[in-house]
């Protein structure tokens, strides 16, 4: 009888674990495919960036900067400045500068700023803390608030969002790197 219990318990547990694993594998597949698509897009934008350095237009220059996001923010900014340099309208040019990638326990954070005439006109989060669903929630709440604060203050010198301290710190660190790159 004990054998019967052991065998059925083992079978039931194995069945439950396999069922869980199977549905989990599905989720993991989806996320990795999303990741590979993302890499693909960055790659293609990167090639647009090389077109940008030929100095055709400012827009392609900004695309070039976002293309180099894949490697690091500073390269992107230099690409963008060279692009704006060729157009010869540096003051009026729209530039985008990506900050550094900041690692946190809840995932990596990276922001990109859009600068026009020496002013930050937009802040976009390229990556936000997403380690667990709870982090995604926190990020989605905190990001718009941080964006508003930054646009108002025109610097990284703003209050962190309570309950999203980790995300806020990483967000503002990445932002500071982007500001440095933009020489603001």
């Amino acid at each position: 009888m004990r054998t019967r219990a052991a065998v059925s318990a083992a079978l039931a547990s194995a069945g439950i674990l396999i069922a869980g694993w199977q549905s989990g594998v599905h989720i993991a597949d989806t996320s990795s495919s999303v990741a590979s698509t993302a890499t693909g897009t960055t790659g293609s934008t990167g090639s647009t960036g090389s077109t940008g350095s030929t100095g055709s237009s400012a827009t392609s220059g900004s695309a070039g900067s976002s293309g180099s996001t894949g490697s690091s923010g500073s390269t992107g900014s230099s690409g963008a400045s060279s692009a704006s340099g060729t157009t010869g309208a540096s003051a009026k040019a729209v530039g985008t500068y990506a900050g550094s990638v900041v690692q946190t326990r809840f995932g990596s954070v990276q922001v990109q700023i859009t600068v026009q005439a020496g002013k930050i006109t937009d802040v976009t989060a390229l990556q936000l803390t997403d380690a667990e669903r709870r982090s995604v929630q926190i990020s989605n709440q905190a990001a718009p608030l941080l964006r508003d604060e930054v646009l108002q203050a025109q610097s990284a010198n703003v209050q962190t969002i309570s309950g999203a301290t980790v995300t806020s710190d990483a967000y503002l660190n990445s932002l500071q790197a982007a500001l440095d790159a933009a020489n603001l």
Binding site: I16, L17, G20, W21, G24, V25, I27, A28, S31, S32
Partner: peptide, 12 residues
């Protein structure tokens, strides 16, 4: 308990 975690993509 473990299966629910696996189903949530825990292996990732």
């Amino acid at each position: 308990a473990v299966a629910l975690w696996l189903a949530d993509g825990g292996m990732a």
